[in-house]
């Protein structure tokens, strides 16, 4: 189990559009809500109403400020969850085989019944995509909502991850990144989707779409005044303006 499949038939994953994400955190709680009662044990919270609350989440949204050399500073909201890497180090380190990558669709999962909670896979993941549940002592991670995307009890249109379904801006896309014809692959191609920390050699499946170019540089305005109002006065202006009417 712990060996990675040579090749997966599909590479299901997410494409996250940083140009569109407003940082609303909807995907964070939708993920928690679904997975709290879905795949595996609930996502527990410790000290939930106390001074130091803490809990297990499979998806977190950060916010960064980017300061270009010569343009206005930007804020980029940045969702972070498991990237379902092709070369997933979290899988190979696992001593129990609980952590595995599926050959059929590339989803990286934890078999919670086999997990001893050693935490090694979380150490191995560069992206912080795994969180050990403090109540159950097992490793939790994004399942790509396997219990939704193949769930025959759900209507066809709902067979997508909870976070994708809830994202109000449509910044999250789900699909097969191994299929170059898929909508997600085309989006990645069109918008220059990229990998996070390529130097970590994990070959993530999930891709991020960069913010589009923002804040047009100051260039000349195209609006030319009708005439010199100082010289011609309001009457002259009025003549010109109303003269435009048919």
């Amino acid at each position: 189990m712990t060996c990675l499949p040579q090749k997966t038939d599909k590479a299901l994953g997410l494409v996250i559009d940083l140009d569109t994400c407003v940082g609303c955190q909807a995907c964070v709680t939708a993920c928690k809500g679904w997975n709290d009662q879905g795949y595996g044990v609930p996502l527990s919270d410790q000290n939930p109403y106390g001074s130091e609350p803490s809990g297990t989440f499979l998806n977190r949204v950060h916010s960064y400020q980017v300061m270009p050399e010569a343009a206005a500073p930007m804020i980029v909201n940045f969702p972070r969850s498991c990237l379902h890497c092709a070369d997933a180090p979290c899988v190979t380190v696992c001593p129990t085989g609980a952590s595995y990558k599926r050959a059929e669709d590339g989803i990286v999962l934890v078999n919670e019944d086999a997990c001893i909670g050693c935490g090694l896979c979380a150490w191995a993941c560069p992206y912080g995509a795994r969180e050990m549940d403090a109540a159950a002592g097992v490793m939790k991670k994004c399942t790509l909502c396997v219990d939704r995307i193949y769930n025959e009890n759900l209507p066809e249109e709902d067979r997508e991850p909870a976070c994708v379904r809830t994202c109000p801006t449509g910044a999250r896309h789900f699909g097969d990144l191994a299929d170059p014809a898929s909508a997600v692959s085309q989006l990645v191609a069109a918008r220059g989707g990229y990998d996070l920390m390529p130097e970590q050699a994990t070959r993530p499946t999930n891709k991020y779409l960069p913010p589009r170019k923002k804040d047009r540089p100051d260039q000349a305005s195209l609006l030319a005044p009708l005439l010199d109002i100082k010289a011609t006065g309001l009457a002259g202006w009025l003549d010109r303006v109303l003269g435009k009417l048919p």
């Binding site: 609303c24 955190q25 909807a26 709680t29 939708a30 909870a162 379904r165 809830t166 109000p168």
Partner: peptide
């Protein structure tokens, strides 16, 4: 979860609604 047919949110929810 959000009601897909609803005219306001068309299935999506915010962070508060989803929790």
């Amino acid at each position: 979860e959000g009601n897909r047919d609803h005219p306001i949110n068309k299935g999506v929810l915010c962070a508060k609604g989803a929790s």
